[in-house]
Simulated scan of single mutants.
Amino acid sequence: MLDTTLHERDRELDAASAEHGFDPNVPLQIGGRYSSLVRDGRTIYLSGQIPRIGDHVAVTGVVGAEVSMERAKRAAAICALRALTLLRQELGSLDKLQAVLRMTVFVHCDAGFTQQSEVADGASDLVWRVLGAGGAHTRTSVGVQQLPKNAAVELDLIAACVEA
């Protein structure tokens, strides 16, 4: 009997990526002397991801002043797509991912903005959509004065894979 759940997460990543105009099969650009991810046994640490599609940052500016909640949540989702893409590139398939353990979401916002967690929901919702229960994670969301390339959102995460 054929296992129809095989690579279900990968198909869902591809579908979510298409909705955001993101191609998860294109190598991701990094801008410095660091690694996009580091693997230590079953634990994988990902560097911060901004909402870059190709060589263009898709959502820039200050959330709550120049960037709407809808666009900010989209930025968070694109950051999550990038993170999941890096995990798939490392593991060969998201089916080899046990769980996302921790996510930190940084929101470039004005001083009076207090809805960082709602912005972060854009990333959390996407991770849950792609990974199901494996997407349940701890999370911190914070407001910051500035992010690289004037990005509206940046996230990093820690994940666990099935085997070392």
Rank of each mutant, 00 (worst) to 15 (best):
L6Y: 03
H7V: 01
E8H: 11
E8V: 11
D10A: 01
E12M: 08
L13Y: 03
D14P: 05
A15D: 09
A16V: 10
S17Q: 01
S17P: 06
A18G: 08
H20V: 15
G21F: 14
G21E: 10
F22D: 01
F22Q: 00
L28I: 15
Q29K: 15
I30Q: 15
G31V: 09
G31H: 14
G32A: 12
G32Y: 15
G32N: 12
R33F: 13
Y34M: 08
S36L: 10
L37G: 10
V38Q: 15
R39S: 10
D40L: 14
R42N: 13
I44T: 08
I44R: 01
L46K: 04
G48I: 09
Q49A: 07
R52H: 08
R52W: 07
I53N: 10
H56T: 15
V57T: 06
A58T: 07
G61F: 11
V63M: 12
G64D: 00
A65E: 11
E66R: 13
E66H: 09
V67W: 11
S68H: 06
M69C: 04
M69R: 10
A72Q: 04
A77S: 01
A77Y: 01
C79S: 01
C79K: 00
A80E: 05
L81I: 06
A83C: 04
L84C: 02
L86E: 03
L87T: 02
R88C: 05
G92L: 09
L97T: 00
V100D: 09
V100W: 11
R102K: 15
M103D: 08
M103F: 14
T104R: 13
F106H: 08
V107M: 09
H108K: 13
C109K: 03
D110Y: 15
D110M: 15
G112P: 02
F113G: 07
F113M: 03
Q115H: 12
S117I: 06
E118A: 15
G122Y: 01
A123H: 00
S124E: 06
D125M: 11
L126T: 01
V127N: 00
W128K: 13
W128E: 07
V130M: 00
V130A: 02
L131E: 03
L131S: 03
G135E: 01
R139I: 05
G143Y: 05
V144L: 03
P148A: 05
